[in-house]
Nucleic acid binder design. Structure first.
Ligand code: SF4
Ligand code: SF4
Lengths: 137, 137
DNA sequence: AGTAATTACTACTTAAAGGTAGTATTAATT
DNA sequence: AATTAATACTACCTTTAAGTAGTAATTACT
């Protein structure tokens, strides 16, 4: 009942980048050091973020990474989506799968509330919301 | 962001057993067939449920399993606890870990609401609540 | 042109969850 | 006592997530 390591790292990375928006480029070494994420694992994640168009990379000497959009336009849900970690409408609690109003397990209705709240939280929180203000990353 | 396979199976097994309370014993083959869970994996789970005192087992010919307590006294949370899949108070969204009121990430407060709702859901739902009524298991 | 610093790619290793196989133990029936 | 049907135990195999290593490609600076 928690996000994958990869998703957690990705959120923290992007929030950190949003926070440092002033300085144009941030490189992998700086990110890995600041966020205490294994360097090689981080670069792997960064490449996926670049492919997903959330981040721009500049290769070669003096290269680095930069957010591709303004922080307020990148939602946490967009990040989770990349790693198949977002909450879908059909997210199932007991793993039976496709059920409907007539045929459902007894936890389905109870599960709806927190599920929708999680969805909303992820869809409405942008990097601008979760970065800055001296908050922990 | 979902329960482990093992936890999902365990909940469904116990809910099914609560539903069939009338017939004294249910054996592993019946459970595996009814719930479409791999037999050998199911017996592994059953043994853990027995050790955790939620289920009584009777070995030998004509043996099987039986709930150890009445259905209303077994909460979903008790099941999740066995497999370290319950929602703890300290459950962390971003994986940084031990934070507090003064030093926290910006998602912490938003995360509190769904987290508490999940906790409540698991702690308050008993097998009696989720079994029966022709609901899917 | 050469070097250094950077991201990207390919491939591997490790750890954990999920699942399977075989055997031992237990107990009722004959 | 032997057989049969059940759970319990031990050990293994498979799949996926997490993490690591090495090399190629790219670019700025000298
Ligand atoms: S009814 Fe239960 S099993 Fe079916 S989709 Fe909803 S949560 Fe999952
Ligand atoms: S503040 Fe954020 S990182 Fe810290 S425990 Fe809460 S959710 Fe986790």
């Amino acid at each position: 009942m928690n996000l994958s390591n990869t998703s957690q790292y990705a959120i923290r990375i992007l929030a950190y980048m949003a926070d440092k928006q002033d300085s144009t480029l941030i490189n992998a070494t700086m990110l890995a050091d600041a966020l205490i994420i294994p360097y090689k694992f981080l670069t792997k994640i960064m490449t996926e973020l670049v492919k997903a168009n959330l981040v721009v990379s500049i290769r070669g000497r003096d290269g680095g990474y930069q957010l591709k959009k303004v922080a307020s336009e990148i939602k946490v849900d967009d990040i989770l989506y990349i790693f198949n970690d977002n909450i879908s409408d059909k997210q199932c609690l007991l793993g039976i799968g496709v059920c409907n109003k007539l045929c459902k397990c007894s936890m389905h209705d109870q599960w709806m509330k927190p599920k929708l709240q999680l969805q909303k939280m992820f869809q409405e929180s942008s990097l601008a919301d979760i970065a800055g203000e001296g908050s922990k990353i």
